[in-house]
Design a protein around this nucleic acid. Sequence first.
DNA 1: ACTATCCCCTGACGGC
DNA 2: TGCCGTCAGGGGATAG
Length: 289
Amino acid sequence: MPELPEVENVVRGLQAGILGSRIVNVRCHFKTTVGGDADCFEAALRYKTIERITRHGKYIFLRLIGGDQTDGTVSGRGLDRRCCSVELAVHLRMTGQLLLVERGSEADKHTHLEIFFEGGDSKIVYRDVRKFGRLLLLEGGIEEFLEEKKLGEDALKITEAGLFQALSRTKRNIKATLLDQRTIAGMGNIYTDEVLFREGISPLRGASTLSPKEIASLLATIRKVLRAAIAGRGTTISDYLSVLGRSGSYQHELLVYNREGLPCSRCGTPVSKSKVAGRGTYFCPNCQS
DNA sequence: ACTATCCCCTGACGGC
DNA sequence: TGCCGTCAGGGGATAG
């Protein structure tokens, strides 16, 4: 399940692989992935150039410019380029993958989209076993989209003051609050459990009961864990792969997630699993309170 | 406004 | 071997 570190690795892979490339063809095999109208989506992408690739939380944004011409020149030369740029927002949800593969490789039954580029011998494919992921063309800009979704600050950018404010105004527990993308964007089930374990905080603890000191420590750990996971090329439990098809390595660094019944690395008590905020939640009943 | 629950979707897995 | 139920979970929709 791609969370911030996995998405960041995908962004870096895309930047290395397709930044500046011009799209010459798009094939959509499952229209729900692109919001329902495959023809419209394909036409909107065709002949555009990928100018910028960014991320906010678990969303990837590709800025596309140009298009509407087949002769290779950037349209609107001498005009305001912004008038023909569009943002493509991508959310991988649970099992989505963006892969850079050989142009001639066959699309399997889980490949929902193929994007072909000018020159070169590769293409980008979007695969998604469970079909939860979406690729969405934004009418407005990124800022407008973030506002509409009410997304919180990115987990690597939020300040102590910002996190304090977000945690103090809810009656929910800390796990549900950190998972809520409107509070802080980028945390998912795995990294939330890991961070709370490292902080010795029970997932059931009320978010608003954390002291400023605890919040400062929590944020430092959020940053530390996310950065280490990015450096470890993400966590591969079942589906996550980099753009080049490579597994992550951070699953080997996990201290509680997926470790039900195994001894806590700090005190030896068996790691518990229960359902919190509707998610399978791993924690040490002795170390976290 | 806030919170909890259901739903989407497929593959893996356990029980019989 | 195969059938069936359950689980996994991000986020949108809906209900309370």
